[in-house]
């Protein structure tokens, strides 16, 4: 009697464990595929070697989707603004976690056709680069170098302020990211 009770208990436990594992797997799968389709105007397109897509082979984002990502803040001066500015936006690291890149290099292109040189994703992640969508609490308009301005934390790395190659990467009017 006791032996049959024990075996029933083991069977029930195994069943619960299996169901839990299945649920966990399904929820993960759902999270990974949950790159939402943009409902408003697309302001950023990520294309190339990425594993998560929402519109054909690209990952497209509207302002609301970008805002749902954890906001990072960079307080710095730039060559193109007067005085210290507060930039806010999602970090490249968080964005990359969302699109799961298959490559290690990235290139940014602006609305006016300007492109940065190819950069490593690791460099942007290590520096904590953000895609700023707000400046001093206000959304960046195109005339404020928006809708997205790639920003390095130059206050933490003062050498970057005088490094010309970094200045080339502070791309404004950002429109798309290519990954290879």
């Amino acid at each position: 009697m006791n032996a049959s009770k024990n075996s029933l208990f083991i069977f029930q436990s195994a069943l619960i464990l299996a169901v839990s594992l299945c649920l966990l797997f399904i929820s993960n799968l759902t999270w990974a595929e949950a790159l939402p389709v943009p409902k408003d105007r697309v302001i950023l397109t990520i294309e190339g070697n990425i594993n998560q897509h929402n519109v054909s082979n690209t990952a497209q984002f509207d302002l609301k989707t970008l805002e749902k990502l954890p906001m990072q803040t960079i307080k710095t001066t730039t060559r193109w603004t007067n005085g210290e500015q507060i930039f806010q936006g999602p970090s490249v690291r968080n964005l990359m976690q969302m699109v799961q890149p298959g490559g290690s290099q990235i290139k940014a292109t602006a609305l006016d056709g300007y492109s940065t040189p190819w950069m490593t994703i690791a460099e942007l992640e290590n520096y904590g680069v953000i895609l700023a969508i707000k400046k001093n609490g206000n959304y960046l308009r195109i005339r404020d170098k928006g809708p997205i301005w790639m920003m390095y934390p130059m206050h933490s790395y003062p050498g970057l302020k005088t490094d010309l190659s970094t200045q080339y990467k502070l791309i404004w009017h950002l429109r798309s990211l290519q990954i290879r």
Partner: peptide
């Protein structure tokens, strides 16, 4: 796919000319 819209181009041009009178270059 390759170029900004006319309203965007107006804004870009505005931003470029504003660069002449703001920031360190100014």
């Amino acid at each position: 796919k390759t170029r900004a819209s006319l309203p965007q181009q107006v804004e870009i041009t505005w931003s470029r000319f504003n660069d002449l009178i703001s920031g360190q270059n100014a």
